[in-house]
Amino acid sequence: MLPAEREHLIITFLKTNKKATIHDLAIEFKVHEATIRRDLNKLEQFNQIKRTHGGVVLNDSEVWDELNFDDRESSYYYEKLAIGHQAAEFVENGDTLFIDSGSTTIHFARALTQKNNLTIITNDIHIASILKSTSNQVIVTGGILYKDNYLLNGMITNDTLKLFNPSKLFLATPALDLEKGVTHFNETLTSTKIQMVNQAKQIYVLTDSSKLDKVSLYNVCPTHRIDTLITDHTNHKINWTSYETKLNHLVTVDTNICH
């Protein structure tokens, strides 16, 4: 089989299976893992795939799914770390916060451990466990536990969120587009994010730049409702001038300080 033919079949495989490891692909195409790595290197050069910790996914403008939390946390790790630390600069002692569940907001929660007199409402048990030893008040929403992602969701979660009117929401997302705004691929998870948006006074979106210029099926929040987007500037395909023009406030972080 020619390399070009195998590369095409790898893309087809990923469209069907969403993600794969190098080992999976080597078995599927009956070649050595070194051969698969060369194929992936070429596909990555043309922005057709995205490498993750131990695997690979399609690099697509439409988001239909995402990896489990552990894989997402290791992907773009330093970008997410820097975003989390920068976001903490927007929190003042005495603030009331919604913190959405996510692999970027987990770093934000870690950066809040030095803050005081906060009231934090979250639907993420991992975030709650990080903040439990601080002097801040932590409220967990309750709801159905999604075990692979540490998040709580569903009717109980949404009913709890309706009880609060926090000053700030720190929102995670798998997709953000200047025209479509914040979107999500899962209808059930979308409802909780929408409820957070409806209740909060200010909205901060925390996401690495690989999620920009991406659209998913369900609308969460229009662009004009975003008070501040905090991201990294490592994605060279992004038209940053458009983001600066259309957003209320854009903050891009320096990831070098985290290495």
Score class of each variant (00 low, 15 high):
Leu25Val: 10
Val31Ile: 15
Asp65Met: 05
Phe98Tyr: 15
Thr21Gln: 01
Asn149Asp: 15
His126Thr: 01
Met155Ser: 10
Asn47Val: 01
Thr255Phe: 06
His23Arg: 13
Val140Ser: 02
Lys147Ile: 10
Lys50Glu: 14
Glu7Ser: 04
Leu14His: 08
Glu28Val: 12
Thr173Asp: 06
Thr122Asp: 11
Asp95Leu: 01
Asn123Leu: 02
Asp70Gln: 10
Asn153His: 13
Ala34Pro: 00
Ile99Trp: 08
Gly94Cys: 03
Phe185Cys: 08
Glu244Asp: 14
Ser74Cys: 03
His32Ser: 13
Leu189His: 14
Asn136Ser: 14
Thr207Leu: 07
Ile226Gln: 02
Thr207Glu: 00
Val56Asp: 05
Asn41Trp: 01
Ser101Met: 10
Arg51Trp: 07
Thr255His: 08
Lys193Cys: 07
Leu161Gly: 11
Ser135Phe: 02
Asp39Glu: 08
Leu178Gln: 10
Thr245Phe: 12
Ser135Pro: 05
Arg110Leu: 03
Ser74Ile: 02
Leu67Asp: 13
Leu145Tyr: 12
Leu171Ala: 08
His224Arg: 02
Ala20Cys: 11
Asp232Phe: 05
Leu25Thr: 11
Leu152Ala: 11
Gly154Gln: 07
Thr173Asn: 07
Thr104Asn: 03
Thr207His: 00
His249Gln: 14
Phe108Ala: 05
Ile156Asp: 11
Asn17Leu: 05
Tyr218Lys: 04
Ser209Thr: 08
Lys237Glu: 14
Asp95Ser: 12
Tyr77Cys: 00
Asn153Ala: 14
Asn68Thr: 09
Asn153Gln: 11
Thr104Met: 03
Gly154Arg: 06
Tyr77Gln: 03
Val220Leu: 02
Glu33Cys: 03
Val138Ile: 15
Lys30Pro: 01
Pro222Asn: 05
Ser167Pro: 00
Gly94Met: 01
Lys18Val: 08
Asn136His: 09
His249Lys: 13
His32Trp: 01
Leu189Thr: 13
Thr228Gly: 01
Arg37Glu: 11
Ile120Thr: 08
Gly102Lys: 04
Ala26Ile: 12
Val56Gln: 02
Thr12Cys: 04
Leu171Ser: 10
Gly55Lys: 04
Ile27Glu: 15
His224Ile: 05
Val31Thr: 15
Lys246Glu: 15
Tyr150Leu: 01
Arg6Trp: 09
Asn149Ala: 07
Tyr243Phe: 15
His107Ala: 01
Asp71Gln: 13
